[in-house]
Simulated assay, not measured.
Amino acid sequence: MQEMDIYAIYPKPNLSKRKFQESIVPYLLRNREVPFPNQVCSIDITYIKLHRGHMYLTAIIDWYSRKIVGWNLSDTLGVQPPS
């Protein structure tokens, strides 16, 4: 594997250790009840590796119903003009 420069893809050591120069951002929704839909939403951006490149899957999730409100699949993270 070393001769062919092939390596396994897995989490490397110490990835979960916190860097102390970074500030801690407080969790703003702790102990907060979400009684109505469309009151609190979150976004998730996932990097998908493909054979020849990569794609980004972006999803907007409603916290009340835990359902996906909208999603987009793109090869860049840039803003796309509305169609």
Rank of each mutant, 00 (worst) to 15 (best):
C41T: 07
W63M: 06
Y64C: 01
L29P: 03
P82D: 11
T58H: 02
V79I: 13
K19T: 09
H54L: 05
Y27T: 05
R52I: 12
I43T: 14
T58M: 07
T46G: 06
F20V: 14
P82N: 11
L50G: 14
Y56F: 14
Y47I: 06
L50R: 07
R18V: 10
H54A: 13
F20P: 05
Y47R: 07
Y56M: 01
V69L: 14
T58K: 02
K49A: 09
Y56L: 02
L50K: 09
T76M: 06
P81A: 04
K19G: 13
E33P: 07
G78I: 04
Q21F: 15
L29Q: 05
Y47L: 09
P37I: 00
Q39G: 05
E33D: 10
C41P: 02
P37K: 01
L57S: 10
S74E: 10
F20L: 14
L28G: 06
E22N: 12
L73I: 15
D62F: 03
Y64L: 00
F20K: 03
D62R: 03
G70D: 15
F20E: 08
Q39N: 07
I48Y: 03
L73Q: 09
L77F: 01
Y64K: 06
L29K: 02
M55H: 15
K67I: 07
S74F: 03
C41Q: 10
Y27F: 15
I43R: 10
I45G: 08
Y56G: 01
L29Y: 08
N31S: 11
D44M: 05
S16V: 04
T76R: 10
H51K: 15
V79E: 15
A59L: 10
S42R: 04
I60N: 04
L50H: 08
R66I: 04
Q21P: 12
F36L: 06
R52H: 14
S16Y: 11
S74N: 13
L29W: 08
P82A: 08
L28C: 08
Y27I: 09
S83E: 13
R32C: 09
G70C: 06
F20S: 13
T58F: 03
R18M: 09
G78A: 14
R18Q: 10
V69T: 14
G78R: 11
L15P: 01
L28I: 11
V79S: 15
P37R: 02
H51S: 14
N72E: 11
P37H: 01
P81D: 05
T58S: 08
V40A: 03
F36Y: 09
R18W: 04
R66L: 08
L15I: 14
D44G: 13
G78E: 15
N31V: 00
G53I: 02
Q21N: 11
V34K: 00
L29N: 05
E22S: 08
I24T: 13
P26D: 04
S16W: 08
S16C: 12
H51Q: 14
K49Q: 10
T58C: 06
N72Q: 12
I61G: 02
W71Q: 12
Y56W: 14
Q39D: 06
W63D: 04
V79W: 08
P35L: 03
S83K: 15
M55T: 12
M55Y: 15
T58W: 02
Q21G: 09
V34S: 00
Y64D: 00
I48T: 09
Y64I: 00
Y56I: 01
S16H: 12
K19V: 08
N72A: 05
I61T: 13
P82Y: 12
R52L: 15
K19A: 14
R32T: 05
